[in-house]
């Protein structure tokens, strides 16, 4: 899977589910400071990723350290690579995310 597909899927989640304006989605944007998310949004972001990728992130220390959108891209890219290495078809998951996001 290409990184740009992953970024597109993440950005789509921000626009469709968190109602963040697309032009604000710059890699250096702070999730709390620039995009207006709060701690509950972060929980939902985590839950959304858990459900989509079938992984557990609740105890993830790395997840707690995410500050910018770039940190999130990097974190998810790393997770995607881990999943792919374990034989999971991540392309299919990302396509599903895009498909689900498009419904709302």
């Amino acid at each position: 899977m290409e990184k740009k597909d992953l970024i597109e899927a993440i950005n789509k989640t921000f626009v469709d589910n968190l109602e963040v304006e697309e032009e604000l989605l710059k890699p250096e944007a702070g999730l709390f400071t620039d995009l207006g998310l709060d701690s509950l949004d972060m929980v939902d972001l985590m839950v959304g990723l858990q459900r989509k990728f079938k992984i557990s992130l609740r105890q993830s220390e790395e997840m707690r350290k995410i500050v910018t959108l770039q940190d999130l891209y990097d974190f998810i890219e790393k997770k995607e690579a881990e999943l792919r290495a374990s034989g999971v078809n991540t392309q299919e998951i990302v396509e599903k995310i895009n498909e689900d996001s498009g419904k709302e």
Binding site: L40, V43, D44, V47, Q50, S56, R58
Partner: peptide
């Protein structure tokens, strides 16, 4: 049915 309480939305 959907993975337990840890998959529940914050709201």
């Amino acid at each position: 049915e959907e993975g337990g309480a840890e998959n529940m939305s914050s709201t």
